[in-house]
């Protein structure tokens, strides 16, 4: 199978026009085959993008991108449940399921499985594939040997595996909004303060070291995952899809770098140097892949 790039859903709360223009740029310029779209982090944010949704989706489709609709990762409240139902119960959309409630609505229809649904082993993969899963994006903490074991099983099931190769790493979800908390508000009274931070709010240790990134109810790494050096190894193991998680700046040039390496037009070393020059500034990490602390960078 020809390996290709995918673009993960925008996880942050951008101004609606910025969000729309970003996807226009994806349609016009970005060398990604599949685009995941939809609110994954906070159901309160979803309506903010409604008025541009249709236009963005048709522009992406017209540009030949495959569009997949990602569902909310943590589903508790009535608003959460309505949002998941609206997306996952539709017969017309192809869905990336990010929690078990989406699987309930899908009822065995063909779908993708997102990185927020825990798929850590062969048995889980077999069960999900027997119930409609056609591709699975693996959890970000899986090390190389486990990824390879998963790829072995996936091949026999006709299931494609995806691995996030770039961007901040989603590390945790909570019922509580930490953006609201930092601003002395609660989730219900948040006034959408998360829109002040297009790449999330950096959380530092009291010694001043940047540590994590707050994105509403989600906690991400501060470091930026970069597996460009492991692409060929992942392809050899049988991984065919490589996910880039969007940041507010530099995502286009990042995708071009990865595409050049996939097409063997650029070496991994050259790509690493180029990626370090993009406007998005955060130290690289690849520790999870090497079965080390996730924040580490093993060159």
């Amino acid at each position: 199978m020809q390996p290709f790039l995918t673009l993960g859903p925008v996880l942050l709360n951008w101004p609606a026009e910025h969000w729309r223009d970003f996807y226009f740029q994806v349609a016009d310029e970005m060398p990604v085959e599949t685009v995941f779209i939809g609110e994954v982090v906070c159901s309160k944010r979803a309506p903010l993008f409604d008025r541009h949704f249709e236009e963005v989706v048709s522009r992406l489709k017209a540009a030949g991108k495959r569009v997949v609709f990602s569902t909310l990762a943590e589903v508790t409240s009535k608003i959460d449940r309505r949002l998941v139902k609206r997306v996952a119960a539709s017969d017309e959309l192809y869905i990336e399921a990010n929690d078990a409630s989406a699987l309930w609505h899908l009822g065995g229809r063909p779908h993708a499985v997102g990185p927020y649904l825990n798929v850590y082993n062969e048995e889980s993969l077999e069960f999900l594939c027997a119930n409609g899963a056609r591709s699975v994006c693996l959890p970000p903490e899986l090390p190389a040997n486990a990824i390879a074991a998963m790829a072995n099983t996936a091949a026999g099931l006709g299931c494609e595996l995806e691995v996030q190769v770039y961007g901040r790493i989603p590390l945790a979800l909570s019922a509580r909004c930490y953006h609201a908390r930092a601003h002395n508000k609660t989730k219900d009274s948040c006034l959408f303060v998360c829109d002040q931070d297009p790449d999330g709010m950096v959380l530092c240790t009291q010694e001043g070291r940047p540590f994590l990134t707050i994105n509403g109810v989600q906690t991400q790494s501060y470091s930026c995952l970069n597996l460009v050096g492991q692409l060929q190894e992942l392809i050899a193991a049988g991984i065919s899809r490589f996910r880039i998680s969007p940041q507010s700046i530099g995502t286009g040039s990042t995708a071009e770098c990865f595409q050049a390496v996939l097409q063997k037009k650029m070496s991994a070393e050259e790509a690493t140097a180029k990626l370090a020059e993009t406007e998005f500034e955060a130290p690289f990490s690849n520790g999870f892949y090497h079965q080390k602390p996730g924040h580490r960078w093993c060159s």
């Binding site: 825990n118 590390l171 945790a172 979800l173 994590l212 996730g294």
Partner: peptide, 13 residues
Amino acid sequence: MMAEGRCLLTSYV
């Protein structure tokens, strides 16, 4: 504080 089964913070550190 984090949703159970969905916290990679210890793993990250």
